[in-house]
Structures are given as C-alpha cells and as structure tokens.
Nucleic acid binder design. Structure first.
Lengths: 217, 217
DNA sequence: ACGACACTTCGGCCCGCGCCGAAACGTCGC
DNA sequence: GCGACGTTTCGGCGCGGGCCGAAGTGTCGT
C-alpha cells in the first residue's frame, strides 16, 4: 500500500490538483500557463510539473523554450474523474461568475478526450435508443457499423468504456469510440469550447446534425 | 479540483494507506488491530480513523468498548484498487518472507468482496468460456440463469463490474456477481484464506468443484 | 466496587514540503 | 551579440500535520 500513498500524495496538493484539472481538457499546456492558472510562481509550478511527470501522471514535450505538458493518457483522466466523482459535488461555488462557469461545465464539457456532463448523458441515451450501445455501454455489432460510417477505425485502444460523471453521477461513453465521436463533433463544428475552458456547447449546426443522426438532445 | 486534493490527501499518508489496505479484505477491524498493523500508537490510529470516516472512506460500528471500522462500500475498494493499479508493481519486495507473502497475494486474494489475482483471472476466463460473461465482463442472459442456480439474487447493486487488477493488469469480475461467487466459494470450502491475510488459495475440494462447474483452473 | 482494557483528547515535538524571490540557463528574434 | 522571455535551480521561510506519551472517559469482567 506504499504505492497507493505515493500516487495519492501527488494529487493531495491543491496546486498540483489544479494543474491536473486544467489538463483534463486533453490539451497540452505550457508551464507558464499552468502557473498562472494555479496562481503560483513559475518556479513553483516548474517543481510541481517535474514531480507529476516523474510520477507518471504527466508527459512533457519540449519545444524550443517552451515546456508543454499533458496528461500521460486516458487512464490518468479516468483516475482523476474517478477520484473527483468519489469526493462528489462539494459546496456550491461562490459568486456569480464561478456559479455560471460551474453550470456551463455541468451542461457539457470534455473529459480528456470525450464528452461529459448533461451533453455526455444525452449522447449516451441517444446512442442507446439507436442501438449503438447497450445499457452498460458495450458497443453492439450494428453500433460498430454505425461508428465506422462516421469514420471510426478500431485500434489497439479499448473501444468503449464507462466513465463515471462527477456532476451527473451517471456513467457515460469513454474509450476510443467516445473519443472519436467527440473529435468528429469538433471537426464538424457541432460542438465548440466556451472560451478556453473545458466547457462545451452544442451549436445550432450541432443540434441539426444530431437530429439527422437520430440523436436526441 | 479542490475536492480531488482532499480525497487524495486522505490516502496520501502511509499510515492511512496501510489502514485502508488492511481493510481491503472486506472485514471490520478494531482500532487497536489497525494500530498494530500500521505500527503506530493507538492514539495515532484513532485520529487517522476519525479522519478517514469523516472523509467518507470508512464507516464505523461501535460495539461496547470496541470501535469496528470497515470500508464504506465496494466503491471505496474499487477506488483503492484503481489507484494501486495505477502506481503499478513497485520494486520487488525485500526479504524471503515478504516475497513469498507477495507471491501468495499475486496467486489469489480477495479484493474487498470478490476474487482477484491469478485466481480471479482464472475465474474470469472460465466464466468467459462458459458464456456466463462477455469479454468485457457483462453478464449474458444465460449467465444470469447460471448464477441463479448458484443462489445469486439480483439486487439494487450493479450486477457486474470490471475491476482492474494491480498484479495482473487485467480486468476481473467485481460487482454483485463477483461478490456472490466469492461468498459461495468460501461457504463451500472451495477457497480459504492464508492465515489472516487477504491471500486465498483454491482447496482440493475447490479444484474439483470448479471442474464440475466447468471452470478451468 | 475495582482493575483491566479499548479508545480518545491534548500538548508538544519535529520533519516534510509548498511557497517565494533571486539568480542562472537556454532559446528566440532582431 | 543583445535583450526579452520561458524555464529551472537554490536558499530560506513558515505552516501543516504525523508522531508520541500522559492523562481522561467509557465499558467489561469479576
């Protein structure tokens, strides 16, 4: 159980937790961006990043004078969401600005590489109605055909996976299929990020696209 | 991400991690037992237990002058195993005694209320061959019948669930079905604990019983 | 009623570590 | 080459928290 304490210690600091939370958007951030986000000095952030990378939670990608870091993979995102789900919805966020940001996240957001929040739930129930997935988020044979029509190509990565939502407390679609759908939706302009946050909204084009696919919103 | 840091902090201490690890056997321990296990003073253990209970990881059950504590539920066990899996197999245990104990755990152990280790993997592949579960550990309709013949009764709890193994890195059967099978095996004397640890072995009667059920070992 | 025992509370010690600013290093643009 | 900028290293500060022992509370057996 020594190993458990070590990985927990990495996440037990609010600054490091804030960094991981920011990286949950699936993108790579520079060290300075993360320092600003977590409201600490660049030197402090630098040390935290080194620790998180050494611990295997993050990977880095140096480019010129920049140090880009990102989550080490979907498994890290899943661990983070699992722990956040466990802690559950804490006290209501204070202030109008924080409250509306929180509400936007609850409506829809990316969870590393797939959709979560109410939008993720809507996608899941839509896929369920279409027979693409079963109630426990397994892809059906006909569902695989449906996905391939959207350009999905099976790879080594697990096709589908349940990811527990920390706002809705309902499992939603993760894994390669979830990631692919999210990617397609972005490409087609069906969803877009709100500012630079993880929160996303379904665009008018997205509403129409979803209807044409037979998905309910 | 504040919530994440809080739950992580609970597990970030080696003494609290050791306590949780001990409780992963699914039984209730007294405060003194846990203090001895973690090699700290009773007063120290007492404070840790209070924190873990307040954090929702443990539940207590006071009986006379004893304070029994146990994991708050399967979801806690799943979180613990997920985090341990992530950390992965650390450095080899030092010393002959520790090494053989570690090997026994790898062969077979309980993971809160179901089987894990090589024994858990064997059970999973046996159930897969029998068509009781699918490759992603969903119970098939015929599998449900098979389980009911072994006395399984569906309840509110999720029937099946994948739990990632920290020794084998392979998902095995958790959830209500996994717990029921483990219980039945104990009742029939097919498996038994090694000493007072989480490690279990398949008894000769168990080997025969598994064969009769059509399970491979 | 008494002692034994399980557990808790409190005070105090001390180590770990998160923080910063200053300074050094490396890269980029001009 | 030079300055601007992103990043890292280092020293030092201060707080949080894990540890223990001593003393107190409650329960059990006799």
């Amino acid at each position: 159980m020594e190993a458990l304490a070590q990985v927990a210690a990495l996440l037990a600091d609010r600054t490091r937790a804030a960094i991981c939370g920011a990286l949950l958007d699936g993108r790579a951030w520079t060290a300075t961006e993360l320092a600003a986000h977590a409201r600490v000095a660049p030197s402090t952030a630098s040390e935290h990043l080194t620790r998180l990378i050494d611990g295997g939670l993050l990977v880095e990608h140096r480019q010129g004078r920049h140090r880009y870091v990102a989550l080490a993979g979907p498994h890290v995102a899943e661990l983070l969401e699992a722990m956040t789900s466990f802690a559950g919805p804490g006290p209501k966020p204070r202030g109008l600005r924080a409250a509306s940001a929180s509400e936007a996240m609850a409506r829809g957001r990316t969870c590393y590489d797939h959709l979560a929040g109410k939008l993720g739930i809507a996608l899941k129930s839509g896929l369920l109605d279409l027979g693409v997935v079963t109630a426990d988020l397994t892809i059906t044979p006909s569902g695989l055909v449906w996905l391939k029509e959207l350009g999905f190509e099976p790879s080594k990565r697990q096709v589908s996976r349940a990811c527990l939502d920390w706002t809705e407390r309902v499992p939603h679609l993760a894994g390669a299929a979830g990631a692919h759908l999210c990617e397609v939706f972005f490409e087609r302009g069906w969803i877009k990020r709100i500012g630079t946050t993880r929160a996303v909204v379904l665009t008018p084009a997205g509403e129409q696209g979803w209807r044409e696919l037979g998905l309910t919103t």
